[in-house]
């Protein structure tokens, strides 16, 4: 189980990286933490022509709070975000979700933006970005653009990122007064890919619920403050709309069941932690 041969370039800036991406063509890949990409290389599921390593790009390694967002650079590791002082206060949802992201050992090297870029439908960080309505900065030799979360992830392992583009940063909106945030997920073992991941935001007027692991991308729905049967009906409708799929770990029906049952749990939890 060894990778196919590839060229390797360690860059020191995003500018250098996008030039290499442009030169490398369709099969050039950015590597940051490598936690998602390296297993695919070892299985030869992916055979890039060149790996462009941004893990040592200092200018992409930052956590910055500004204008109601926390901006996280493309080389910033999940563990760094987890250790960031402002996390519980500014990003309570992400704070609740991060312990579910892989393991201590994978978070130590895995990056936040790498997880967004990989676009696994079960992943926690893309789900949080979708529910919080964050955005992603992309850069290529043609310039920069910003994509809102709901347009970023387009399907299974697929994003709006075009060949030649790389993620330079992601922005997670900070917590709003009066809102409660809650996260939970069901995985068979600690740290496994979620069968269903759920992120909820409750405000004085509405409830927002994002679901990962059921459709081919994180999906978000917002309702007025519902209670009792109305909430159950809304969750049921959401579950059926998401559909779900069968794999060896769970049936589509089980996934829908979790949307209904854990959806309720996570919404209740979000309501109780409204500030």
């Amino acid at each position: 189980m060894k990778p196919k041969a590839f060229d390797y370039l360690k860059v020191s800036s995003a500018e250098e990286a996008v030039v290499a991406l442009a030169q490398g063509g369709e099969d050039a890949r950015i590597i940051a933490g490598g936690l998602s990409l390296m297993p695919m290389l070892n299985f030869r599921l992916a055979e890039p022509s060149i790996l462009i390593d941004i893990s040592k790009v200092d200018s992409l390694n930052y956590i910055r709070e500004a204008d109601g967002h926390v901006e996280i650079g493309a080389a910033t590791r999940q563990a760094d975000l987890m250790r960031w002082d402002g996390l519980a206060d500014k990003l309570p949802l992400v704070n609740a979700a991060l312990p579910y992201v892989g393991h201590y050992q994978t978070r130590a090297k895995g990056t936040v933006c790498g997880s967004l870029s990989h676009a696994d439908p079960s992943s926690e960080l893309p789900l949080c970005l979708a529910v919080l309505e964050g955005e992603v900065d992309l850069q290529s030799t043609n310039g920069k653009r910003t994509i809102p979360a709901d347009q970023f992830q387009t399907g299974m392992l697929s994003t709006a990122k075009q060949a030649g583009e790389m993620i330079t940063a992601a922005r997670y909106p900070t917590a709003k007064d009066g809102c409660g945030y809650a996260f939970t997920e069901m995985a068979q073992r600690r740290g496994d890919f979620a069968i269903v991941a759920l992120a909820a935001i409750a405000s004085a007027k509405s409830i927002k619920l994002g679901i990962g692991g059921v459709a081919d991308r994180p999906t978000v729905r917002e309702w007025d403050l519902l209670e009792g049967d109305a909430l159950n009906n809304a969750l049921n409708e959401f579950a059926w709309d998401l559909g779900g799929y069968d794999d060896i770990h769970a049936t589509a029906r089980y996934r829908r069941e979790l949307v209904r049952r854990l959806g309720r749990r996570v919404i209740e939890e979000a309501k109780t932690c409204r500030s």
Binding site: L45, P121, S122, G155, M156, L157, D216, D247, I248
Partner: peptide, 17 residues
């Protein structure tokens, strides 16, 4: 083959896409 053995989680979405 390999893709079924290691990529099970991806297949459904991949085929659809």
């Amino acid at each position: 083959g390999t893709v079924a053995s290691v990529g099970g989680r991806l297949l459904e979405g991949a085929a659809k896409a």
